[in-house]
Computed example of a mutant assay.
Amino acid sequence: MGKISNKITRYKECCHQNGKRLTFLIYYHKFKRKIFNRFFLGRSDTCIDSSSQLLGLKNIIIGTGFQTGKHFRIEAVTEYNGIKYLPRIIIGDNVSFSDFGHVGATHYIKIGDNVLFGSKCYVTDHNHGNYRGDHASSPEIPPTKRNLTVDQKVIIEDNVWVGDGVTILPGVTIGRCAIIGTNAVVTKNIPPYTICVGIPAKPVKKWDFEKKVWIKY
């Protein structure tokens, strides 16, 4: 009875704050999300929005407490242009993406526990074509016809906060407890316990363990 009473109380509070029509829409979307997670994904410990696209699920491991906003997309690419890939995406516990997040892998992406992503974040371990060394892709080849790269990993360690609009490119590790500022582009490794901003992302502050404050990097 206690749980039912609490739910009724929360519903009344929502009606008072938002009105009956908006409250109905809020609860309708919650219901859709619950049905999507339990019956289509077979999970009761996640909160993935029903507008999400999850491609290559056999190659994706998702921890408990995973949450997404609207139009989230995650894809473990197993074949492209007739070439087969063996991707792996591992997501830890209590990871959260806001609206329009996108994660794509042909090789390996690992996201640790308690990582928070803002909206419109993009995480990828590959490119359309190779632009390094002696076997670079010709610009005359249409981008969709260029083979995907498979030689780099992305690792995001525990307790990282990624701001809105951040792009995380192949071959980087973001250290534990780092903060990535809005619209940054991560092209190189990020040290743990730092705040990084810009294009490309660079540290501007670090955590001082003795003084318990953020100081200039």
Rank of each mutant, 00 (worst) to 15 (best):
M1F: 04
K3A: 10
S5H: 05
S5A: 10
K7A: 00
K12G: 00
C14F: 01
C15W: 02
H16L: 04
Q17L: 10
R21G: 00
Y27P: 01
Y28K: 00
K30I: 08
K30F: 05
K32V: 00
R38P: 03
R38E: 09
F40R: 10
G42S: 00
T46N: 00
C47F: 15
I48D: 00
S50I: 06
S52R: 13
G56D: 02
K58R: 14
F66D: 02
Q67Y: 14
Q67S: 13
T68V: 00
T68Q: 05
G69D: 06
K70P: 00
R73H: 11
I74D: 01
I74P: 00
E75D: 06
E75C: 07
A76L: 15
V77E: 05
Y80L: 12
Y80N: 04
G82S: 15
I83M: 05
I83Y: 09
K84E: 01
Y85C: 10
L86W: 07
I91W: 09
I91H: 07
G92E: 12
G92F: 10
D93V: 03
D93Y: 02
V95I: 13
S96T: 14
S98Q: 14
D99M: 13
G101L: 11
H102V: 11
H102W: 13
G104T: 03
V115K: 01
L116K: 11
G118P: 00
S119G: 04
S119E: 02
K120S: 03
C121P: 03
Y122F: 07
Y122L: 03
H126T: 09
H126D: 04
N127D: 09
N127F: 14
H128Y: 06
N130M: 13
D134C: 02
A136Y: 11
S138F: 05
P139K: 02
P142I: 02
P142A: 08
P143A: 11
T144L: 13
N147T: 13
L148I: 09
T149I: 12
V150G: 08
K153F: 10
V154T: 12
I156T: 04
N159Q: 11
N159R: 06
G163R: 10
G163Q: 08
D164G: 06
L169K: 14
P170C: 07
C177D: 14
C177M: 10
C177T: 12
I180V: 14
G181E: 06
A184D: 04
V185F: 03
T187L: 12
N189Q: 01
T194A: 03
C196T: 14
I199E: 12
A201W: 04
K202T: 14
V204G: 04
V204Y: 03
K205H: 08
W207K: 04
D208S: 09
D208G: 08
W214S: 04
I215M: 13
I215P: 01
Y217S: 15
Y217T: 10
